[in-house]
């Protein structure tokens, strides 16, 4: 792997001495355009985020809701992801999910077997995270809402965000800074704990209020 070749690969998680490869676990990072999904993936990934792409048909061109975020027109949809080797048994992949609802075809494949999801929200454009919330609620994929604090955005309380996004009291709402590794890590921990609570029989047997 010491070659100076341009496509030298970051070393994949090593197989353990018995020849076993680690179990691959997937967490999705979803949210609207420009909300910081790739930033978050990059802040916790052990490799620089990789990007692959899927070809987009012309039928979906020209309907991007950019909301004045940036000029963006492309014929491919990029899928950014990172990797965290948790230990020799488990390797975690984080996939930044294309934000627009018209990419359902990719969401289906991405959601297949996903442990859970982080819905990144920007309080200045909260509505851009609604498609992701709807998607995960419908598929019964556990998720947390992480509010990325942008400079200059009004600092809403988590409960205000919960009301605006209209998610149940059991969904964790976390204020975060997607640029900070520790904060992004906390969001992932909150998600894993949330998934564990959901799977615990004691919790699921709890009578509804």
């Amino acid at each position: 792997m010491a070659s100076a070749d341009s496509d030298t690969t970051p070393a994949p998680p090593a197989a353990d001495p018995g020849g076993h490869i680690p179990l691959a676990v997937k967490i999705l990072v979803a949210g609207g355009f420009g909300v910081g999904k790739t930033t978050m993936v990059g802040s916790v990934s052990e490799i620089p985020p990789l990007s692959t792409e899927e070809v987009m048909t012309e039928a979906s061109m020209g309907v991007d809701d950019l909301g004045g975020v940036e000029e963006k027109s492309t014929t491919t949809v990029a899928l950014d992801f990172g990797r965290i080797t948790v230990n020799r048994q488990v390797v975690l992949y984080l996939f930044g999910t294309p934000g627009q609802g018209r990419f359902w075809f990719m969401w289906d494949e991405l959601a297949e077997g996903a442990l859970g999801a982080v819905v990144l929200a920007d309080t200045r454009r909260l509505d851009t995270c609604f498609p992701a919330v709807d998607f995960f609620e419908r598929r019964k994929i556990p998720f947390v809402v992480a509010v990325n604090r942008f400079d200059g955005a009004y600092a809403y309380e988590p409960e205000e965000v919960r009301e605006a996004v209209d998610v149940g009291p059991d969904v964790p709402i976390i204020l975060t800074d997607a640029r900070e590794r520790q904060e992004s890590k906390s969001v992932l921990l909150a998600l894993v704990e949330h998934v564990m609570r959901q799977r615990s029989p004691a919790v699921s047997a709890r009578p509804l209020p």
């Binding site: 018995g18 076993h20 490869i21 680690p22 179990l23 691959a24 676990v25 916790v44 965290i84 948790v86 230990n87 048994q89 488990v90 975690l92 442990l115 890590k185 992932l188 921990l189 894993v192 704990e193 998934v195 564990m196 799977r199």
Partner: peptide, 23 residues
């Protein structure tokens, strides 16, 4: 290649939680 299923579903979560905390 397939990962040997050495871990059950709940164990995976615990391993993941411990691993992330230790990062």
């Amino acid at each position: 290649c397939t990962a040997e299923p050495q871990l059950s579903g709940d164990d995976v979560l615990q391993v993941l939680l411990d691993g992330l905390r230790a990062l």
